[in-house]
Design a protein around this nucleic acid. Structure first.
Lengths: 186, 186, 186, 186
DNA sequence: TATGAATGAGAATTCATTCAT
DNA sequence: CATGAATGAATTCTCATTCAT
């Protein structure tokens, strides 16, 4: 029904935005990708801008849920980080979103206010990752230093590895997790 | 005179493209940034596309020259990597270019042929970095493993740290070099 | 519906092109003449060039149908020629097209390839007229000589008389047919 | 010197205007054809419009001089017509002008006032040709009827045959004169 | 005179958005 | 809900014209 149709649009739009860039993605491209008429998009989203903002928000929240899930789980920090990386890199749909978020911050397609909200959510997620880093430090397996800085670097590594496909480097290998752990380990 | 004017346009365009995104950068923005009329841009570049392709090429070649310079120099691999990072992160003008290159590869603003040329130049530069990694391995200070894979990861780290400003994380700190070395060291 | 709308644009464009010349006809002029927004023209024709090429092709085909119709008909060659002239000069819409075709061939608004197609269609129509001349020669009422040359001259006379209005000489009189026949008769 | 340079521009412009159409002919095309910089054209003609008007006027006056020359000359009307045709078709430079004049009348590149002057000069020339037709009628070799109408048709034939090259039909043959005479003879 | 860099008004084209069906 | 024809603001690009050298 309605919610389902909306999701279908969001997923199509994610793919198109990450493939074509924010300004380069046309509403008609998105409609075609979703198998709908372009006019119909407007029955679900008032503007292209609203659609974009929705995608970004949903992507960030999905990512936040993954982080929270791992945080709440039993097990050591290294294992958590490993599973997060696997999810980000191989679950699909998530790496494209990050690329869209990045462009969102760089451009002024979205109004400053919306950009600020996105930034805030990004910080929220960074805090969650920071908590995992702190757990690793308590377990004495992660390197010492400002946990927030370490989380920042880990997050950067996490997301940018996800962009490999876009860069024409192919899908990241599973062994990339080891590099991530090399970075944060003692 | 003529060449100088062209360079002036290229520099202005680099700034605008990296600030606004490929499709979001308007020719009139670039003209204003360069302090020229928009019509005049077309006396130097036939189209926006040609201007973009020129910027990317020049940026990649500049980066290539930095790598070659370090490669030819005396000294250990760690020192070379350190100086490369300093240049990429703090010399200005270069980090923005990488962001533009990345968008270029992701979108289809440029024709496939041009994109292939950009990819080829990217691989060329990756080869140069690979040679530095190999030197580090011969010196027995860098971690073992496929030098090309290590170079790829180092390059990713190098460039994406440069995007911090865009992400609203501020300019990378000089201490980031230590993280890069932690990644590649034994 | 769709086809009808397209025809409406084509007819408006014919008028504007023949009134203002190829480069002088603005898309906005055509839109206004058709009673549409300029943007909508692009939902039917990708470019001004494509619109022009379509007009020319349709005009030539229409003219070809008139010739074929007469050729298939009973009656003597003189009568056929007479009716063709009447149609070309007084049916409206057709003389303007010829003027557009002429400019098309003279200028390089259209690519060489398209111009070649137009030339080919022109020759096709000339062949049809040649057949009528040959009939007249068989009937022994038309002057002897190379029928293709005679057809060429007759066609020239036919079309250029149609341009009288453009030259400010007013609409051709019906008696002009007699001049045409004087030219081809024994 | 100055007048010579001006003539050089006029001749180059004639070629370019007849090849590319009025709006399609760029000042830079004309400059290149004349072997000058485009800026320099403005030292001789205030605007493109003035240049065009000058070309047309000179062409019409040249044609008028040819007609006057024949009118003043001894000999029969048929011989005069024959020589006029030869001049118009084979002297070069003149046929292109007629094509330009024709476009001038059809378009509104020139202001109404200038167009009226051109029309007036056209009528003047038509009167000269009419006098030759009248001579032919007095000699009893030309067909009877309104001499002005005959002159109009003869002039049309004269000029449009000159357009053959533009239409891709090649240069008119010398034998075309016989067709012209067939048209006006008894 | 002669050049060509520079300008900006104007034309072609694109595409988000609306709306009748 | 769904469609796609229609609109027009915004952008790219062109080219006549100016002007410093």
């Amino acid at each position: 029904m309605r919610e389902e149709r909306k999701l279908q649009i969001i997923q199509a739009a994610s793919r198109v935005f990450s493939r074509k860039g924010l300004a380069g993605a046309k509403m008609s491209d998105i409609a075609r990708e979703a198998g709908l008429s372009h006019g119909h998009l407007y029955n679900h989203f008032k503007t292209k801008e609203e659609l974009l903002a929705t995608i970004v928000q949903m992507g960030q929240e999905l990512y936040g849920r993954v982080l929270k899930g791992e945080l709440a789980r039993e097990g050591d920090a290294a294992g958590k980080l490993r599973r997060i990386a696997e999810t980000v890199w191989f679950s699909g749909g998530m790496t494209g979103i990050y690329w869209v978020v990045l462009q969102t911050q760089a451009s002024d397609v979205l109004p400053a206010e919306t950009k600020a909200e996105i930034s805030a959510r990004m910080m929220l997620n960074l805090d969650l990752l920071t908590q995992i880093i702190e757990q690793g430090q308590r377990e004495d397996t992660f390197t010492t230093g400002d946990p927030k800085e370490i989380a920042t670097i880990a997050m950067m590594f996490l997301h940018n590895t996800g962009l490999w496909e876009i860069r024409g480097l192919g899908e990241p290998k599973h062994s990339m997790v080891d590099w991530l752990l090399k970075l944060v380990r003692k």
